[in-house]
Amino acid sequence: MDLNAIVSELAPRLLRYCLGRSGSPELAEDVAQDALSVLVQRCRAGNPPDHAEAFVFTVARRRLARRLWQSRWLEPLDVLLGRQSGGADPERFTAGRAQLGLTLKGLSRLKPKLREALLLVAVGDMSTADAARVLGISSSALKMRVSRARQQLQVHLAEHDPSVATEEMESYDHAAT
């Protein structure tokens, strides 16, 4: 498969994943671009990874964790020095996109392990096997995490946006029983 086609196919999935993980569009764009750049460099150096998809998501996952950790530590310093925070203002970004704000809030309330699993599978469109490989867990463990994450997210969405979620919750409860 052509490198351009691979990158074009992975870019929207990676952006969705990074945005869901960080809640910051700026950071999502930076990290997605970085991860794809690493893939491009590897391929051009004649050392393409076996699974481009898993490789890119693994790189993005690590860099996101690093950047989020850095921003968490530097944020008080930025506030102290009166500098603009490195992260984007989620409220500004989600203004007029109430649905997105609600979704991001719901995702942020999930436990990190559950959120990671859900984002890789549901948002990143990864197969169960690939997502399990990225997270370093078994497929059954991944399915369990995804299931729990979906359940908790549904509850959150139903609480904060009943008009939207009532119908989904009913069908969800019906399916669960």
């Binding site: 979704t103 549901a122 469109d125």
Partner: peptide, 9 residues
């Protein structure tokens, strides 16, 4: 739910 997540993000 997955469709909604994808659409939102």
């Amino acid at each position: 739910l997955d469709d909604r997540l994808r659409a939102d993000l």
